[in-house]
Amino acid sequence: MSVPLVTLLMWLVTYPARLLGLSLGRLKLPPFWLAFLRFVPVSVFAALIVPDVLGSPEWPRRLVGCAVGVGLMWRTRNLALGILGGFGAYWLARLAGL
C-alpha cells in the first residue's frame, strides 16, 4: 500500500474520534460521568508523562529534569521557564554522568 493511501487511512481513523466527542457533548450526563470527565485531563496527562520518564533508558536524568521543571512551574506558574529550567537540569545531570 502506498504512503499517501496509508496516510489517508490514518486520517480516516483519527478524525472521527476527534469529532465524536465534540458532537456528544450536549448529552445530559449523571454526576458520576461529569466527575469522570473533570478528571480526564489529570489522568491522561499523568499517563502520558510517567511512562515517558520512568520507562526511559535515561530515566534518572529525566527524573532530575522533571523534578526541577515541576518545582519551577509550581513556584512561578510559568510554563516556558519550567521547560527551559527542566531541560537545563536534565543536561546538568547528563553532564554529571547520571
Binding site: 485531563p41 499523568a46 521543571g69 512551574m73
Partner: peptide, 19 residues
C-alpha cells in the same frame, strides 16, 4: 540533543495547574 525530556516537561506544565 536530549530533546526527549521536553515532551514530559511540556505535559507537566499542563498537569501541575490541575493538581
Amino acid at each position: 540533543l536530549g530533546v526527549g525530556v521536553v515532551f514530559p516537561l511540556a505535559f507537566l506544565g499542563l498537569l501541575v495547574p490541575l493538581l
